[in-house]
Design a binder for these strands. Structure first.
Length: 417
DNA sequence: TTTTAGTCAATAAC
DNA sequence: GTTATTGACTAAAA
């Protein structure tokens, strides 16, 4: 009936994606488009309620199928020409966990891929979608821009025809692909249309200069290990430290810098998730298949999620670091505390943060206090328990570490409590 | 200027 | 073929 987000996306997406900032490599036949700049997009939809109020019916259908629904009624005035940004700005708090959970469910049930969904509905690439679905941040931690995909998802969920439309799209894509394939075959050469799986790195270059792909840097396990160690020492290394690391590991400094940025950011995200889980979950994510605890692979305990394996990086990072580096201590622990649930009061100092967290749970923590560094993970039956345990353990370590450190100082004035 | 947030895209894993 | 991971990059915030 009325224009809904899907229509909107659809129309935008299939528009000649001239301004596409980057050609999505996987961009398939269906000319996806960034649909990113919602401004334009919305204009495109002229006048029609981007998401008709009707399609915004307060999700009485409770997509989450559970407790807190993702379906907080989105604002949307029946206004025409309301941009997605405006909608985002006006949106009430959404339960990002419930939304992603539901989206995943719908996609799986209908055998729809993340790529299609991402490019068509969200204007994001597959990798981003995967990440988003697996590790949604809580609404209140999201910037306006970060909220946008969730609003889109919510709208999509609310559209009763969302699935069939996407399926149609899928069919079309397939058809177009086959067609191209056929014609290129009959032409005798592989033109490949340049569209899917294009070899260009960025959309901007002329097809002429086949573009010298910058090879992707892949850090080896030892390098990662070393970086993690360095991170534990100092999550915010000085330029000098970075230089040293880079030369020791034979990496570019920019790689090291990037690694630290990414690592911090990803660990932070893990924390967000653990946070809501520990809190019983605002969202539904908690029950069972929490995205965060993608107990999935990463068996080797790698990825920022190094979190998963031994003593969570983030917890460790809350360990002693920062003692020598005021910044590390401050920023770092501040992060830890706020992100780990804002348990410690505002403005708490390093020590407090630890205590704050520590105080959070009673159970069993006492017993582990005896040692310094704990193995951090027992038989982890329930990943969630395990995480909690790790967190507790890490905080204990933290405290112990501080105590030891304090004790080792002659002058009490140096004590950092 | 540095850090964060958000994302892309290559590629590894399934 | 699809999904997950992760190094790199951009824009915005601090």
């Amino acid at each position: 009936m009325s224009a809904n987000l899907y229509d909107f996306c659809h129309c935008v997406c299939s528009a000649p994606a001239e301004s596409t900032p980057k050609t999505s490599a996987s961009c398939s036949p269906a000319p996806e488009s960034p649909l990113s700049s919602a401004e334009e997009s919305v204009n495109g939809l002229t006048g029609d309620p981007l998401i008709s109020q009707s399609s915004l019916k307060p999700p009485s259908d409770d997509p989450s199928g559970g407790e807190s629904q993702p379906g907080t009624p989105l604002p949307v005035p029946g206004h025409s020409g309301l941009s997605i940004q405006e909608m985002v700005a006006m949106s009430p708090e959404l339960d990002t966990y419930a939304i992603t959970k539901k989206v995943k469910e719908v996609l799986t049930d209908n055998n729809l891929g993340q790529r299609l969904f991402g490019e068509t509905i969200l204007g994001l690439t597959q990798g981003s979608v995967s990440d988003l679905l697996a590790r949604p941040k809580p609404w209140h931690k999201l910037s306006l821009k970060g909220r946008e995909p969730f609003v889109r998802m919510q709208l999509w969920l609310q559209d009763p025809h969302s699935v069939e439309k996407l399926m149609d799209m899928k069919r079309l894509e397939k058809k177009a692909y086959m067609k191209r394939r056929l014609s290129s075959l009959s032409d005798g050469h592989l033109v490949d249309g340049g569209l899917p799986g294009s070899d260009y790195v960025q959309g901007s270059q002329s097809p002429g200069q086949q573009q010298l792909k910058k090879p992707r840097v892949v850090l080896g396990p030892e390098e990662k290990e070393a970086l993690k160690k360095a991170y534990q020492q100092k999550p915010y290394p000085s330029p000098k430290t970075i230089e040293e690391l880079a030369s020791q590991l034979n990496l570019k400094t920019s790689t090291v810098i990037n690694w630290f940025h990414n690592y911090r950011s990803r660990i932070r995200r893990e924390l967000f998730i653990e946070e809501i889980q520990a809190a019983g979950g605002v969202g539904t994510g908690s029950e069972g298949g929490s995205p965060s605890l993608r107990g999935s692979k990463s068996g080797e305990g790698d990825s920022c999620d190094g979190t998963e394996s031994e003593g969570t990086a983030e917890t460790r990072h809350g360990l002693g670091i920062g003692m020598e580096d005021p910044r590390g201590c401050k920023d770092h622990d501040m992060e830890a505390e706020s992100e780990a649930g804002g348990l410690a009061g505002p403005g708490s100092s390093c020590g407090q943060s630890g205590l704050g967290l520590f105080g959070l749970t009673d159970a069993s923590s006492g017993s582990s206090a005896s040692s310094t560094i704990l193995p951090a993970s027992g038989p982890a039956r329930n990943p969630r328990d395990n995480n909690l345990r790790k967190k507790k353990a890490a905080n204990l370590n933290n405290i112990i570490h501080r105590l030891e450190k304090a004790a080792s100082k002659e002058d009490p004035s140096e004590w950092e409590f």
